[in-house]
């Protein structure tokens, strides 16, 4: 039996970064019941790592997004394929690429609507995830498409890029909306 319930809850809450009330709810049986000595024992736990991650050769892509509200791709110096997501070399030619400015229009090639999301996105449903073809790029990039009604999503829908007001230098810095809406 847990000796000091309040202290146990406080330590658990600090450890897994979950409010005490929610932990108390999840561990109601262990805290308030009288489980047998050999009953399965569950414990609160978390796996957590912090990073100072480098974007390496594609750092410029995220600086252009963050600082200049500009979408860049990369072009293979040999075959001319324009990559988005960008890459600093071509996996067909094994040749370097150069940076190219892309258009701000796109279209949906395929999409889905997420109604049941991961813990991170749980309160944000429903939302649209799509593979979009940005004008000027040869490959597709996955992005969110924001619509007044998610059911308006369609293959072929014309889109326009929108940038977040406070940008962090990550893929959350931009998204797409229907082309007409952005005019």
């Amino acid at each position: 039996m847990i000796q000091n319930k309040e202290q146990w809850l406080e330590e658990a809450s600090r450890k897994i970064k979950v409010p005490k009330e929610l932990i108390a709810r999840a561990f109601h049986e262990e805290l308030e019941g009288n489980p047998a000595i050999d009953a399965p024992l569950e414990v609160p736990d978390i796996m957590d790592i912090t990073y100072k991650y480098t974007y390496g050769g594609i750092s410029r892509f995220f600086r252009e997004l963050r600082d200049n509200q500009q979408l860049y791709g990369t072009k293979c110096t040999t075959c001319g394929t324009v990559w988005l997501p960008p890459r600093i070399n071509c996996n067909e030619c094994y040749a370097p690429t150069t940076w190219v400015k892309l258009g701000d229009t796109a279209r949906i090639v395929t999409y889905t609507i997420v109604y049941y999301a991961t813990s991170v996105f749980y309160g944000k449903t429903p939302y649209v995830c799509a593979f979009v073809k940005v004008d000027g790029a040869d490959t597709l990039i996955m992005q969110n498409v924001f619509l007044k009604d998610v059911r308006q999503a369609k293959v072929g829908m014309k889109l326009k890029i929108q940038f977040k007001e406070n940008r962090n230098g990550d893929m959350g810095d931009f998204w797409f909306v229907p082309a007409q809406e952005a005019l």
């Binding site: 974007y55 997501p85 090639v109 395929t110 999409y111 889905t112 997420v114 049941y116 999301a117 991961t118 991170v120 996105f121 944000k124 939302y127 995830c129 799509a130 593979f131 990039i141 996955m142 992005q143 969110n144 293959v155 990550d170 893929m171 959350g172």
Partner: peptide, 21 residues
Amino acid sequence: MTFENPMGLTAAASYALPLIA
């Protein structure tokens, strides 16, 4: 982790994308 994780994809969405196409 850089290009797809932040979009809120799920396993179901990963299958739905080719299916819708």
